[in-house]
């Protein structure tokens, strides 16, 4: 077992190294992309529409935009090398600080959504696979189709309409927490965890209530791929020889389905869950907008609209790094779950 884990770690390390060139490519590509997009940040950030040519020129110089693109790139790369992602013109703060403040909000939302999606999708997939072609199977398929068909901002608005406006169960869909609630000391950045660490159950409950609607509307969208892959790989697993062996010695139904079939079937689900997580993290801007969630995606969108280079570049770099990290975690999980992987 230890050798298996060791091999997995070595493999993960190798994977990490091999992803560095890709990260660098992303860096350069985003930089160039921002430069060719129309819109002049200097004009945008000048004092007003009446700003004179000299003023704009001065801002341009201040931002270093008067230099050639390769020169700018070199400056940018050396800044990154020193851990400086630049300063946002919009908020006036260093990008690193902005991202650090907002990332936990996005991560908390995405983790919760993925957890909800998995909790719903895996049993749905299993139930559908146990009786393929039955009413249950078709019901799951319909539910999944609906989840995919309805865009997240529509389902988000629907959820707000029902649970906030009609039933009054949910709090205002405005951010992570009520403005009047006192925040716990920041430790993880995840409000629900920080509240618990501070022993503030009431605050924790308030944070959870804020979290649940956006998380559900995001989860609805990704239940479909997860449930479908669970169903497909459960079908393969249930039809396999080793499940027949398990049945032939009279193992209980639960043992056959959970220990033998599902543990094997869950392997591809781990991979898909990793991809889904990365996608959600970047693509949840709609949900963040609908629920006024102070996350990184909405921050990047605002920056993009106002031609604020540094935050966009910082955001893309962050996403790419997270993607690498998530894949790494998936790899390690896979290595632990499947003893066969380590021999390759």
């Amino acid at each position: 077992m230890t050798t298996g884990l060791g091999a997995t770690l070595v493999r993960a390390g190798r994977r990490l190294l091999s992803s560095l060139p890709a990260l660098f490519g992303v860096l350069v590509f985003t930089f160039l992309l921002m430069r060719v997009l129309p819109g002049d940040p200097a004009v945008f950030f000048a004092s007003g529409p009446n700003a004179g040519k000299e003023e704009i020129e001065q801002i341009r110089k201040q931002m270093g935009l008067d230099k050639s693109v390769p020169e700018q790139l070199v400056f940018y790369l050396s800044d990154i090398g020193h851990g400086n992602l630049g300063r946002s013109m919009m908020t006036g703060q260093p990008v690193l600080k902005d991202l650090r403040e907002r990332l936990p909000a996005s991560l908390e939302l995405t983790f919760t959504a993925l957890l909800i999606a998995l909790i719903a999708a895996v049993p749905l997939g299993v139930v559908a696979a146990l009786r393929p072609g039955s009413v249950v199977d078709h019901g799951v398929r319909l539910f999944c189709a609906l989840g995919v068909c309805v865009p997240t901002f529509v389902s988000g608005l629907l959820l707000i309409y029902v649970f906030y406006y009609l039933l009054g169960l949910a709090p205002d869909p405005t951010g992570r927490i009520d403005v009047f609630t006192s925040l716990p000391p920041q430790r993880t950045g995840f409000l629900s965890i920080d509240f618990l660490l501070a022993g503030d159950v009431e605050g924790w409950w308030a944070a959870c209530k804020q979290l649940i609607l956006p998380a559900v509307s995001m989860a609805l969208f990704v239940i479909a791929p997860l449930a479908r892959i669970t169903r497909a790989s459960m079908l393969v697993s249930l039809g396999s020889d080793f499940v027949r062996t398990a049945r032939s010695v009279g193992l209980s139904c639960r043992k056959v389905v959970v220990t033998y079939a599902l543990r094997n079937a869950i392997l591809p689900v781990i991979t898909i869950a990793g991809i889904v997580f990365s996608t959600m993290l970047g693509a949840n801007v709609l949900v963040e907008k609908v629920f006024s969630w102070p996350g990184v995606a909405s921050y990047a969108l605002d920056a993009l609209l106002s031609s604020d280079y540094a935050p966009v570049q910082g955001f893309v770099l962050l996403m790419a790094s997270l993607f690498v990290l998530v894949n790494l975690v998936v790899d390690i999980c896979y290595g632990i779950a499947d003893p066969r992987v380590s021999i390759e």
Partner: peptide, 22 residues
């Protein structure tokens, strides 16, 4: 109670017939 206890079976492809991750 019959399966395994009173009668059991051996299959053709032994490697596939065993759970690969147990």
């Amino acid at each position: 109670h019959l399966q395994g206890a009173a009668m059991s079976m051996i299959f053709q492809n032994p490697r596939a017939a065993l759970n690969p991750i147990r």
